[in-house]
């Protein structure tokens, strides 16, 4: 079964084509990198998969189930995926540990279990000394790692990454990429990433999918 399947997806904004008849198949545990210049529709495609936009035509299938198109609509939170946003979308009023606790809340876990899991995930991205910090008290790289930890904490089957290594130096990028690759291997996590840097694809061992402005 494919982790993700896009069938002839198209999307226009005010008559301007953002994505046109795009199809893609992603196997479980694999990674692809949407590679192209600004305006080529990479972020729009990720948002269509996440359920933050509705496709005009075409169908999105996750783990074999249709989630958008053909009169079907599944809300983003019920698609079993998570996303790292280009602007990171951190909540400025929440401390690092609260970011993870907040997304874990309501998942049939006790407070202690949530706390343990949040701490573990933050440790995995080297943020153990930043648990009680607000985003503005962290560097750009630390914020990026917090966004990745938050996305991984919900144990998604599909991870969407929008320019995930933009704020990280080479060493940190490799470290985070290794962490994601381990999750791909252990948990069958599939990754779809948008980037304009070919090295990002290499780090994750992702297949490059070139995109061009429609």
């Amino acid at each position: 079964m494919h982790a993700l399947e896009l069938r002839n997806i198209s999307k226009k904004f005010d008559g301007i084509i953002a994505v046109e008849s795009f199809s893609l198949t992603l196997s479980t545990g694999a990674a692809v990198c949407l590679f192209g210049p600004s305006g080529s529709g990479k972020t729009t495609l990720l948002r269509l998969i996440a359920g933050l936009e509705r496709p005009d035509t075409g169908e999105v299938l996750i783990a074999g189930h249709s989630v958008a198109g053909n009169n079907t609509w599944i809300e983003p939170g019920d698609r079993g995926l998570n996303m790292v946003f280009q602007d990171l979308a951190l909540w400025p009023h929440m401390r690092a540990i609260k970011h993870l606790d907040f997304v874990l809340c309501g998942r049939d876990m006790s407070k202690a279990e949530r706390n343990e899991k949040a701490t573990r995930h933050l440790k995995q991205v080297d943020l153990e000394s930043n648990l009680q910090k607000y985003p503005h008290e962290m560097s750009g790289g630390e914020q990026q790692r917090l966004a990745i930890a938050r996305a991984l904490a919900t144990d998604p089957k599909l991870l969407l990454l929008d320019e995930p290594f933009a704020h990280l130096d080479r060493r940190r990028s490799d470290h985070i990429a290794n962490h994601i690759r381990a999750r791909m291997k252990q948990d069958g996590l599939s990754v779809i990433m948008a980037s304009h840097d070919e090295r990002d694809a290499e780090r994750l061992g992702a297949t490059l999918i070139p995109m061009f402005a429609p």
Binding site: A50, G51, L52, E75, P76, G77, D78, L81, N82, M83, F85, D87, L88, A89, L90, W91, H93, M94, F102, V103, C105, G106, R107, R150, A151, T154
Partner: peptide, 23 residues
């Protein structure tokens, strides 16, 4: 994107309003 991050993570609408928007 702050609200979108909560939606994608499966946070309920009401919790999101209280913990993200109102906060």
């Amino acid at each position: 994107s702050g609200r979108e991050a909560a939606r994608v993570a499966g946070v309920s609408w009401l919790r999101m309003q209280f913990a993200v928007v109102i906060a």
